[in-house]
C-alpha cells in the first residue's frame, strides 16, 4: 500500500525538485522556444544587458524549424569579458565556431535572445560521410569518447536529425502524444 502511494506521488512529481536548473524535455523546449534553427555560429561581440555581460553569437541559419525565417540570428550567452570585467556563469553553453548546431532559442520580454535552459537547447549536428546526420545534446560531446578512446553510451538525447525535425513538426501541429 505504501509502495503504491509513493509510486503515485513520484509520478505526480513529474520532474525532480531542484535548486537551479529544471530539466526541460524535448517537447517542452519545442513549445517554449520562440525560434528553432539549424546553423553555424560565429562569435560577435560582448554587450551588457543590465549588469550582466552577454557574449553574443551570430547564427548563419541553414534551416528554420520554428519562428520566422531569417538567414542570420543574433543570440547571447551569459558571461564573458568586457571593458576589463570578466563574468562567469556556471552552466552557460560552450559554443564552437563553425560547428553545425540545432539551437532552441528563446526571446525574453526585453528582446534578449538566448539558448533555452542555458545549455539544454543546444544540440550539435554530426554528419558522417554516407550516414544521415544526427543531433547530440552539445554537452554530451565531451564524453562521446572516453579517455581510452572508447565510445560512451548513456541516455543522452541523440537522434537522427530527421527524427528531431519530425518531432518538432508534430509538436507544433499539436499532434504530439506527450
Amino acid at each position: 500500500m505504501r509502495r503504491l502511494l509513493i509510486t503515485g506521488l513520484l509520478a505526480a512529481l513529474g520532474t525532480l525538485p531542484g535548486s537551479t536548473l529544471r530539466q526541460l524535455n524535448l517537447d517542452d523546449m519545442i513549445r517554449q522556444s520562440t525560434m528553432i534553427v539549424r546553423g553555424t555560429v560565429q562569435p560577435a561581440n560582448s554587450v551588457y544587458h543590465g549588469s550582466v555581460i552577454f557574449s553574443h553569437y551570430t547564427v548563419q541559419v541553414t534551416e528554420t524549424y520554428k519562428g520566422s525565417v531569417s538567414t542570420q540570428i543574433d543570440f547571447g550567452v551569459p558571461g564573458g569579458s568586457l571593458n576589463g570585467a570578466i563574468q562567469r556563469v556556471a552552466g552557460a553553453p560552450n559554443l564552437s565556431t563553425g560547428q553545425d548546431y540545432v539551437l532552441f532559442l528563446w526571446t525574453s520580454k526585453t528582446g534578449l535572445t538566448q539558448v533555452i535552459g542555458l545549455s539544454q537547447g543546444l544540440f550539435s549536428v554530426i554528419s558522417a560521410t554516407g550516414a544521415a546526420p544526427i543531433v547530440v545534446r552539445a554537452a554530451a560531446m565531451e564524453r562521446t569518447l572516453n579517455a581510452t578512446g572508447q565510445p560512451v553510451s548513456d541516455n543522452d538525447i541523440r537522434m537522427p536529425l530527421s527524427a528531431l525535425k519530425t518531432e518538432i513538426a508534430s509538436v507544433l501541429s499539436g499532434q504530439s502524444t506527450e
Binding site: 537551479t20 536548473l21 529544471r22 523546449m29 543590465g50 556563469v89 528563446w106 525574453s108 539544454q120
Partner: peptide, 10 residues
C-alpha cells in the same frame, strides 16, 4: 525577465 525557461536562478 531574461531568465530563460529551464532555469530557476543563476
Amino acid at each position: 525577465d531574461d531568465i530563460p525557461p529551464g532555469l530557476v536562478a543563476y
